[in-house]
């Protein structure tokens, strides 16, 4: 259901666990659906021996996709007008991530109400792996 401006205030937030013990298989699943087969995400031999990382790691876009799930669960289906993120730390197999969407602004533009959200996705150690912003249309 669409959010209602009258029922919201700046500072309200929605928090959701978006993955638990992220599996290498889910990362492979994302490679298949997105078409991004970079071996850094699925090929442990290449990633540890050639690229120099401790293990394969998730696509940034997988974290964005999973965070998007938390955002749309909050604002409703098809209401997003903007969604932008910055990847700040890598996400590893075994990570458990939580996305937090916090209301930064409620505004009206051309008769339409909007909510601006500030996004933060953190891992099980409280380390921020992604930051972002989103805007959605809401009811009055």
């Amino acid at each position: 259901m669409a959010l209602k401006a009258s029922a919201l205030k700046v500072g309200d937030s929605h928090s959701e666990q978006i993955c638990e013990n992220l599996s290498r298989t889910q990362i492979v699943q994302y490679a298949g659906s997105s078409g991004d087969y970079n071996p850094l995400h699925s090929d442990e031999v290449y990633t540890t021996q050639i690229a120099g990382y401790p293990s394969v790691f998730a696509h940034g876009m997988l974290t964005m996709g999973m965070t998007g799930k938390a955002v749309t669960n909050y604002v409703g289906d098809g209401t997003l007008t903007k969604f932008g993120v910055r990847f700040t730390n890598q996400v590893w197999p075994g990570d458990t991530l939580t996305a937090i969407a916090k209301i930064a602004e409620l505004r009206k533009e051309g008769g339409q109400n909007y909510v601006d959200l500030v996004l933060s996705t953190v891992n099980q150690d409280g380390k921020e792996v992604m930051t972002g912003n989103a805007t959605a249309r809401i009811d009055a």
Binding site: N38, G52, G60, L80, T81, K82, F83, V85, R86
Partner: peptide, 16 residues
């Protein structure tokens, strides 16, 4: 190079 990584991604939706 150690390869490219994704730093930022932004979408503006005119519709879905």
């Amino acid at each position: 190079s150690s390869g490219g990584l994704h730093a930022e991604q932004h979408f503006e939706f005119h519709r879905h």
